[in-house]
Design a protein around this nucleic acid. Structure first.
Lengths: 78, 78
DNA sequence: ATAGAATGTCAAGTATATTTTACTTACTGT
DNA sequence: ACAGTAAGTAAAATATACTTGACATTCTAT
């Protein structure tokens, strides 16, 4: 419920492996909606689930969950 | 409830900073029992809480929560 | 333009992380 | 031996992660 910030790193890592949300969800043993909610930043997974996601996507915790995701409107510089 | 393995890395990092479980718990905004349970591996914190712990202890996610903790009896080689 | 898949979202339920209170067991130092 | 603090444990209550089912939307490709 508390917005956290979208996790585009998972989306990107999924793209690298050409995996769908559904496929990733099945690979880590959660529902598709749960994976979607995590990518949308609608909640806050367990460290265990994070580890499972990292394992499947071949990334480290720091890479996928390192810093809190920035919100879209910020950070744009010209 | 499901045993995960004790997290000795947190204990060690706490020792480096001479912090008590209570102090760490207060610093990250959870109860002392929750911190204790995490160190005991009695459950499975949220990634957000992990991030908070890392921030206070000055360690990365991979350093403190990287691999699942091995169980005591294994891994001893002569 | 249509069909099909991937994605986003919502509501109601279940499982489990976290709190509070409280008791116990070390570990200090005096 | 005693007092005080740190650590381990447990039961009951609350908050929230996660599931299931269903529907809407966007993205491809034909």
């Amino acid at each position: 419920m508390i917005p956290i910030g979208r996790n585009l790193k998972i989306k990107a890592a999924r793209a690298e492996r050409d995996m769908t949300q559904k496929a990733l969800a099945e690979a880590v043993g959660v529902s598709r909606q749960t994976m979607n909610a995590i990518e949308q930043g609608d909640y806050n997974p367990t460290i265990r689930l994070c580890r499972a996601i990292c394992k499947v996507l071949g990334k480290s915790l720091d890479e996928l969950f390192g810093e809190e995701e920035e919100h879209e409107e910020s950070k744009i510089q010209y």
